[in-house]
């Protein structure tokens, strides 16, 4: 079975037409995972970016451990947001350029479902990985170890929303040359609630306060985005193909 990008969604192929919706989703998911395994830089570069920007803060703010620890929740979340912004710019770019997006749009399945396979793989490669690695950077900034589980949980939930919102922005700007700056204008305002809920959850964890309700809000955002945004992503991709 070949996984060459342009041929798998030939609408005439009988094999493709016989897949269930879940099968189609899984197929798209696996395809994207394989391409990530093929070029691990796509998953590692955001981590490197995260690491480097975290390094900048002590250099800019001074090495005072107390001050850094106080700002750590905000720093970690802002940098996570920036790195998600950076990776979502390229989310649909290669699919658009090599024409596989057009094939995808003609496939006999809802575009929203197919795209979600791609977004899910992308989230695991960037968001989940970032959340799992974040305790290392948090410890370097002096965040109290009691807050680390909350940090990981909040980043897990939060990056799901960030990835979905980023996918909407990426789908809207994929047909525009030099859409990178426009992308940040489009999605930064939409990311504000995620940033506020995430930072507050971690800050509350530091003072042993009420983290559950803030994590619940993040979870609610993630569920809401999961329910509504795939439709927006699908519609935006169809618009981009028309441009």
């Amino acid at each position: 079975m070949s996984y060459s990008k342009t041929s798998i969604w030939q609408p005439m192929s009988s094999e493709v037409a016989s897949l269930s919706i879940w099968g189609a989703f899984a197929r798209q998911f696996m395809r994207h995972c394989k391409s990530l395994v093929g070029s691990p830089a796509d998953a590692i570069n955001p981590l490197l970016f995260f690491f480097m920007v975290v390094t900048l803060f002590p250099l800019g703010l001074g090495p005072d451990p107390q001050r850094l620890a106080g700002m750590a929740p905000g720093i970690l979340w802002v940098v996570a947001l920036l790195s998600s912004l950076m990776v979502s710019a390229k989310l649909f770019a290669s699919d658009y350029e090599d024409g596989s997006l057009e094939q995808l749009a003609m496939a006999p399945y809802p575009l929203a479902v197919l795209v979600m396979g791609e977004v899910a793989a992308h989230w695991i490669a960037t968001g989940v990985l970032l959340a799992l690695v974040s305790p290392v950077f948090a410890t370097m900034l002096g965040l109290s170890s009691a807050a680390l589980p909350t940090l990981v949980a909040s980043l897990m939930l939060g990056t799901l929303s960030l990835t979905l919102i980023g996918a909407v922005g990426s789908a809207l700007t994929v047909s525009i040359r030099r859409g990178g700056l426009l992308l940040s204008l489009l999605i930064i305002p939409l990311n504000v609630p995620v940033l506020i809920f995430g930072t507050t959850a971690v800050s509350e964890a530091v003072i042993d306060g009420n983290t559950v309700s803030w994590l619940a809000l993040l979870g609610g955002l993630a569920l809401g985005s999961l329910a509504l945004l795939p439709l927006a992503i699908g519609a935006a991709l169809r618009v981009s193909l028309d441009n």
């Binding site: 909407v168 809207l172 047909s175 489009l186 618009v239 028309d242």
Partner: peptide, 21 residues
């Protein structure tokens, strides 16, 4: 976003998606 699209019909639909979100 509207200014960036070349096809103005597509631009209007893209802006519609964005403003609904």
């Amino acid at each position: 976003l509207f200014e960036a699209y070349e096809n103005k019909t597509a631009a209007a639909r893209a802006c519609a998606v964005l403003s609904l979100v």
